Simulated scan of single mutants.
Amino acid sequence: MRWENLYIAGLGAYLPEHEVTAEQAVAAGQYDAGRAEANGIHAVRVASHEETGPVMAAAAARQAIARSGHANEDFGLVLHSGMGHQGQDFWTPAHYVQNETVGGDAAAIEFRQGSNGGLAGVELAASYIVSRPDTTAALVTAGDSFKLPYVDRWNSDDQTVYGDGAGAIVLSTRGGFAKVRSTASISESSLEPIYRGTDWTDVPFESGRPADLDERKRSWLTRHESAYEEAMGRIGDKFAAVLGKALEDADTKLPDTQWFIHANVAQTIAEWGFYQPLGLDLSQTTYEWGKHLGHMGGGDHLIGLNHLFETGKPKAGDLVVAVGVGLGFMWTVAVIEVLDAPQW
């Protein structure tokens, strides 16, 4: 989708102060040394009991709102995304974020799109505010805190190390420091079983053991000889399609862009999924910085965008490509044009 009057007015992030390094986790017997070397994640932030996903998201949102110049009454939509437990059962965390930030009676909606939550929220919010002339701003947040015994941040997924944190973005039809040129999303529902596993459960956390995403993946990707290759082929095709669509709608090509934001994934995934096939240079990304935070679910992209602009490196005219992929599978790509260096 090509956007003509959609802007980023504010960005925010919240990262817990407590840090645990991969080296410390290996020494404590919590993480395998070989896996640590292969994944290349150096450290994660670990939230306290009080720093739930929505609490951190609200903190990130307050920063983004303050930077945006928008008044609370400007917001016509609040979207919140999380991957894991959000601090309470039978509860609506999006309304917590709304109540702690802009208040009011705008629509507040929680959605789950795994690691693609932040960018999927951007596209949904864009469609919402652009189609409503009386709504000038939308708030999108993503926040997660990954805790035992529900999630083992070091071992629940062999190629992912989960860190805690939250990000927020304010989209505006009034103006901002960057313009969203285009967004595109695409799904491949045939890959849905990869993370579902083979057995249903009657209640959350029924087994009392940490989520084992490795076992779910293995049971599906090894069901026949060519299952893995078929899945990788579909993933590659859909990623190429959504990236190409977003770049086409933005009237640009990847070599003509200056910055690239992706999730804080294992270095093998980053190398084979992004750097080699796309010809990216590490200096175009926030990946080295992200290796000290781990994968923070759908918040990675919002937090990464916030960090990129806080460095002061993007200049007017630069193009930023943000790429997300989440369970389902679903991909979202946003192409962003820098208009000016934000005052903050």
Rank of each mutant, 00 (worst) to 15 (best):
E288T: 05
E271K: 00
N264W: 05
K313N: 10
K315N: 05
D249L: 10
M296A: 01
D249P: 06
G299R: 04
D281L: 07
K245D: 12
M232K: 13
A266N: 11
F274W: 06
M296V: 02
P314H: 01
L243P: 10
E230T: 11
Q267W: 06
E310Q: 15
F274Y: 12
K291V: 02
D199G: 11
T257R: 03
R216C: 07
M296W: 00
T198Y: 12
L247G: 08
Q284V: 00
S226Q: 15
W259H: 12
P210Q: 06
Y228F: 14
I235L: 15
E248P: 07
G273K: 03
D300E: 04
L293N: 11
G317S: 04
T268S: 10
G294N: 01
T198E: 15
W200K: 14
T285N: 03
R218W: 07
M232F: 11
G298I: 02
I235G: 07
N264K: 05
I261E: 05
R234P: 13
A270Q: 03
D281Q: 12
Q258H: 09
W272Y: 14
L305E: 06
L280I: 02
N306E: 10
I261C: 07
L305D: 09
P277A: 02
L278G: 00
F239W: 09
G297T: 00
H224L: 02
L305G: 09
F239D: 09
A270G: 01
H292Q: 10
N264Y: 03
I261Q: 08
K315D: 07
A211V: 15
W259S: 03
G208F: 13
A266R: 03
V265Q: 10
H301I: 05
K253A: 13
F309D: 05
D318L: 01
F205E: 11
A316Q: 03
T198C: 14
E230L: 11
G208L: 09
W220F: 11
G317Q: 05
K217R: 15
I235P: 08
W200F: 11
K253P: 06
K253D: 15
F309V: 07
L302T: 09
T286W: 02
L293E: 01
P210M: 09
E230Y: 09
A246I: 07
P277K: 01
K238H: 14
L293I: 10
K291L: 02
N306M: 05
H224F: 15
L254Y: 11
I235W: 08
F260A: 06
D249N: 14
Q267I: 14
A263M: 04
P314R: 02
M232S: 14
G304Y: 02
A246Q: 11
N306R: 13
L243D: 12
Q276C: 01
Y228Q: 11
F309A: 08
A227D: 03
A211G: 08
A246P: 10
D214R: 13
G197S: 10
W272E: 09
A231T: 08
S219T: 13
L308N: 12
H262F: 11
N306K: 09
V203D: 11
